[in-house]
């Protein structure tokens, strides 16, 4: 079975805390999802997304606080705007935009971390390994 590699950029304040809650509550979810903590979802540089795919990720999740709840006033609004651009950007590399997912997960939503991780892993499993422009199989 294809085991996709998934990177999750989670903001420190809501989503990373939610992942901690999922852990404390012993909610099992797909080990394919690997979390990188940043302070705010607004920190997610387009370069990081491109690099993630380039280095072999089959899917990327961006997790931030719900709209209005960002620890830094409105970092997640910027993320939302950037997300639209990012989808276009990854498509330029012939990567299906569905491989990039944005989720608002609050500190109390440990269960949502579990659900999103499992759902996304399955979705990427269906999409299969990534193929980059020029037919170059990067990995898989």
């Amino acid at each position: 079975m294809f085991e996709p590699k998934i990177v999750a950029f989670f903001c420190n304040w809501c989503t990373y805390t939610a992942a901690d809650l999922a852990g404390v509550s012993r909610m099992k979810y797909s080990p394919n999802v690997r979390i990188i903590r940043v302070m705010c979802s607004g920190r997610i540089d387009p370069e990081l997304i491109v690099k993630a795919f380039e280095k072999g990720a089959d899917g990327v999740i961006i997790g931030g606080c719900h709209p209005g709840d960002c620890h830094y006033q409105n970092g997640n609004h910027k993320t939302l705007r950037r997300y639209k651009l990012l989808k276009g950007l990854v498509e330029q590399f012939d990567i299906e935009w569905e491989r990039l997912r944005l989720e608002w997960i609050s500190a109390s939503e440990g269960e949502k971390v579990q659900r999103v991780s499992n759902e996304f892993t399955e979705q990427i499993r269906v999409l299969g390994p990534i193929q980059m422009k020029g037919g170059r199989v990067v990995h898989g």
């Binding site: 990188i36 940043v38 302070m39 705010c40 607004g42 920190r43 997610i44 540089d45 387009p46 370069e47 990081l48 620890h71 830094y72 970092g75 910027k78 950037r82």
Partner: peptide, 23 residues
């Protein structure tokens, strides 16, 4: 928060402890 790092079109900004190179 690091929002400016993500926004800078010239890649001129970075964030201590969360530098692009580190990530």
């Amino acid at each position: 928060c690091g929002s400016c790092v993500a926004a800078c079109p010239s890649g001129a900004i970075d964030q201590h402890l969360f530098e692009n190179e580190q990530i």
